[in-house]
Structures are given as C-alpha cells and as structure tokens.
C-alpha cells in the first residue's frame, strides 16, 4: 500500500510541476509534436531521450531561428487532432505532402524527397540497368498505388508484380529467387538492406515528382503563415549549410534530395 501511495504522490507531483511550467511559458515557444517510434526518423534511445533524423533537424532549425522549441512525443494516430486543437503548433514528423493534407493544413518547404528504386542481390547482373528487369517478377509493397504505377510505366503494363505486406517478406523472396528485384523507397532500401552489403540498387533511384510526389515536410495548422515563414527561414539556412546532407548520411547512409 505504501508503494501505491508513493506512486500516487509521484503522479501528482509530476502533474503539479507540469501545470506551473506551462503557465510560465513564454509566447514565442513553439510546441512541436513528433511520433518518436520510427527508427531512424525519430525514436527513443535507451535513456529515454528523443533521438533520430527529425529530432536533430528540428534542434538545428530551432537554434538557427533562436526559437524556444518544446518537443513532445505524440502518437501518430492523434497527431493531426493534436495540431487542430492547438495541443501542438507543428508536426515535427516529416509527412508526405499529399493534396488532401495540403488542403486542410499549412506545410513548410519540402525537406526531402523520397525516391523510388529497384533492389537486387549483390551478385546480380545490372549492366543493362532497369531495362534489364523487363519481363521478370518484381516485388513491392502491396496497396501502394504509386509503386505499382511506377513499375508499370518503366517496365511495361504487363509486368508480373508481386505485392508483399512488409519489406522483410519481399526481401526473403528476393533471397529465394522468387522475384528478380524488390521495388520500394530508396531510404528504406539503402538504410535497412543495401547497408548490409548483400544487396545493391539497380542504377540510380528516381526522384521525378511525376512518380514520387511532392516530398515530405512539416505540417502546421491552416492559417499560420507567420510560424511557417519563421520555420522556412530556418530550414533554408540549415539546408544551405549542408546539415540535411550530413544527417542523411548519418541516419540513412545516403544523401537526401532536398530540391
């Protein structure tokens, strides 16, 4: 019972201290919500501290514009609701700029574009490039329409496309020779598979907006041009200084495309 009493006391103490902190908050604090459960984008290290690509980028931008940023770990499911209700001012998770999202929210400038690529076994013959994959079975992630459209337009509409639920399942079939190549986003392929030395990409990934869309950005409540302008200024400076390239190499083992 004593333990429960202590716990109760801890919870209340935490609550009371929180309330006083928020009341003392200055007006220029930017509350940023981020779902830190996606390694390497954003995650939690064993000490319970936030870490990852997005965290470091936010810290760089905030120190560039000398803003007081308050990061909190908000689950993805509720992150847009949190934005709408003013619980947070900005979504720090980099979100794909889809038409529907842009209608309802403001977005920062594009931070990076995710490319599409084909991956094969390290010892496969890739001398003919992507053309060499024509007529063979290609694996991809099931239900991602943009992947299917891309494969069909570069390899022909009659390509044998096999959909997998997860990248790991597709790679298992790649190992077993059931598919000739696995098509997915270049960040995932490079960071999780190519970096092991057992796989390689066929040619260069494509970043053509026709296939890959408008890239990823940070999101804000509709009608906050002041904040968006401030953040964009910081982003421009940080990107120009090569920070995104540096973080890309650190977390994704590849250079990020920021244009």
């Amino acid at each position: 019972m004593k333990m429960i009493k202590n716990l109760t006391a801890t919870v209340f103490a935490a609550a009371v201290s929180f309330v006083s902190v928020t009341c003392a908050q200055a007006e220029d604090t930017i509350k940023i919500g981020i779902d830190a459960s996606y390694k390497p984008y954003a995650y939690v290290d064993p000490d319970g501290q936030l870490a990852g690509f997005e965290i470091e980028l936010i810290e760089a931008v905030c120190s560039e514009i000398k803003a007081n940023c308050e990061l909190s770990n908000v689950p993805w499911d509720g992150i847009f609701t949190a934005l709408e209700t003013g619980t947070i001012d900005m979504i720090g998770t980099t979100v794909t700029m889809s038409k529907v999202r842009l209608e309802k929210n403001d977005a920062s400038r594009m931070i990076y574009r995710v490319g599409f690529a084909f991956m094969v076994l390290e010892d496969a013959d890739t001398s003919k490039g992507i053309e060499g994959l024509k007529g063979q079975a290609i694996g991809t992630i099931v239900g991602t329409q943009s992947y299917y459209d891309y494969i069909k337009s570069v390899l022909g509409a009659d390509t044998d496309i096999r959909g997998y639920d997860t990248a790991d399942a597709a790679v298992l079939d790649l190992d077993a020779g059931r598919i000739a190549a696995f098509q997915s986003d270049n960040l995932q392929l490079e960071q999780s598979y190519v970096s092991t030395g057992n796989y390689k990409l066929v040619g260069q990934p494509t970043f053509d907006p026709k296939y890959v869309g408008d890239g990823r950005a940070w999101f804000f409540k509709k009608g906050s041009p002041e904040l968006v302008g401030k953040i964009n200024k910081g982003l421009d400076a940080v990107i120009a200084a090569g920070k995104v390239d540096e973080l890309g190499m650190k977390y994704f083992k590849t250079k990020l495309v920021t244009k």
Partner: peptide, 25 residues
C-alpha cells in the same frame, strides 16, 4: 482535446497562451 480547445478559447481574450492540458492529467 476538448479541454485544450476550451482553455485556448478562454485564454484568448486575455492575450495569454496556455500550454495545454497534460495528457496524464
């Protein structure tokens, strides 16, 4: 979420910004 909306609405006329409800509370 409701308390956040209400707090923001109540705080607006006074020009102060409230940090929002603690999710644990």
């Amino acid at each position: 979420y409701g308390s956040n909306i209400v707090l923001t609405m109540l705080a607006q006329p006074f020009g102060i910004q409230i940090g929002g409800t603690n999710p644990a509370i």
